[in-house]
């Protein structure tokens, strides 16, 4: 598995069928129906998170929590090594002739470094995985998909019954149906 999710790109798709919704519940019904009919949904675009939709689509649970744990361990280890090197090996500070070794006074710095590395490591992974880079051009299928409209995109090809897909979409409340070939969209 590469880090960048290849499923997200719309650039190389030949032809797509698009259904537009304005109602979340009908969108969920339509997605569910399409999945039951064994239609491979490219993606569903919504202006806000619709809970449960990713499970219906069969999107696997993200590895983010594992990445977060690994980043946290890295941060903790680096901070421990830093303090040990500076404070025990390189220049021990004699306070009241106490032995210079691990003490609870290290905990705040270890904790903060762990949190910092976890948060930023996880965020960088999230951005890479989702192809999110500053300045990248967004791939939009409808100019209101970040406002109040929702889009189901189905890639057509061999084995895809276009008429059946369009019928399911229409029967489950799509307010508009479109076909996208290359960069051109036509209303059906």
């Amino acid at each position: 598995m590469g880090i960048i999710d290849k499923n997200l790109s719309l650039r190389d798709r030949n032809k797509m069928l698009l259904g537009i919704w304005e109602n979340e519940d009908k969108l969920v019904e339509a997605t569910s129906e399409l999945v039951h009919a064994r239609v491979k949904i490219q993606d569903v675009y919504t202006p806000y998170p619709v809970h449960g939709l990713e499970r219906i689509m069969g999107v696997r649970r993200s590895w983010l929590s594992i990445v977060a744990f690994l980043c946290g361990m890295t941060g903790f280890s680096l901070a421990f090594w830093m303090i040990y090197y500076m404070y025990v090996q390189d220049w021990p500070i004699d306070v009241g002739n106490k032995p210079v070794r691990f003490s609870p006074s290290w905990v705040p710095v270890l904790f903060e470094a762990t949190v910092l590395c976890t948060a930023f490591g996880m965020a960088f992974f999230f951005f890479f995985r989702n192809r999110m880079i500053w300045g990248i051009k967004p791939e939009l299928l409808d100019d209101r998909q970040t406002d109040d409209r929702m889009v189901i995109a189905v890639e057509t090809g061999e084995g895809v019954d276009e008429k059946k897909v369009l019928k399911i979409m229409k029967d489950h409340g799509a307010v508009e149906l479109r076909e996208k070939t290359g960069g051109v969209q036509t209303t059906i």
Binding site: D5, N7, L8, D43, V44, Y45, T46, P47, P49, V50, L53, E54, M57, V59, R61, S62, L64, S65, A68, T118, M122, A123, F126, F127, R129, N130, R131, M132, I133, W134, G135, I136, K137, P138, E139, L140, L141, Q145, T146
Partner: peptide, 23 residues
């Protein structure tokens, strides 16, 4: 556009977004 990082509301991204927010 620069700061939106190409966001288009994909459900795949929303799922990860919800998880990262929670963590």
């Amino acid at each position: 556009r620069f700061f939106s990082m190409g966001w288009n509301g994909s459900t795949r991204i929303w799922a990860r977004y919800e998880l990262i927010s929670l963590i």
